[in-house]
Amino acid sequence: MATPALRFKRRGLSPQQRRDLRSGLLFAAPAILGLLIFVAYPVLASIYFSFTSYSILQPPFWTGWENYQTLLFDDPLFYTTLYNTFYIAIFTIPLSVIVAMGLAMLLNVKVRGQSIYRTIFYLPTIVPFVASSVLWLWIFNPQYGILNTLLWYIGIQGPGWISDPSWAKPSLIIMNLWGVGSWMVIYLAGLQDTPQELYEAAELDGATAWQKTIYLTLPFMSPYILFSVILMLIGIFQYFTQVFVMTNGGPADATRVYAMYLYQNAFTYFKMGYASAMAWLMFVMVVLLTFVIFRTSARRVYYGGQ
């Protein structure tokens, strides 16, 4: 009897704790296995591949920092795709926040029929990307598309949109704005969570709608905005389907985005090592940017009750 007691003592676990540990691990086993097989191993492997030349048919061989060096100092297309990705991010993210917040605030007004409006605004986000890309390709058609038709009605000769290098990125941004529904719903949830007493008090003090928005709504919504901005950032670095379906990177590289170039290297040119290095640079950039956003927003984000 002395031995088990000793062991318990040494491991510091009571029978209940042991039971908990066992069932905890058992319940989490699939997820833990999943993490090991589908995340941990791939992450380690891709670090390794990023230092090799690997074309699937031959085993990888070590090339050291060559992939990274080539990317950073010797591949203009890498910077082109980075520029395109940042361009799209810099316009899409703030505009999405504004549009989504505007829609959420409208939906938060107490009038009838809100569930219908909410459904309509949300609808674009559930349409498969491939389907919406094909649809927008047709909308952007310079000769027969709806967009230039509408512009024509109001007396404007529309541009070439997605087939014009200087308009292709703005076109993608417009298409992105059409899909802000999920952020809108998140903001709406946040708005409905804000304390009504404060608004009533502000109204008694004669605050205007604008003042209420600036001094009450935005501070209360700031955690939601921060959350959405970070997720949008991660999403835009992975932005792929729309471009792949609509333009395949053209015209004149105007829409060749980072994720697309990565895919191309991996599965068109079979440069698996090079593509892995791109993936890791992307990860580093996402982490750095997330960190910067957290840092710069620290003072402006208001977490209720703190």
Partner: peptide, 10 residues
């Protein structure tokens, strides 16, 4: 060129 690509799009 953009007019041509508009033309081509059809």
């Amino acid at each position: 060129p953009t007019k041509i690509s508009g033309f081509q799009a059809g």
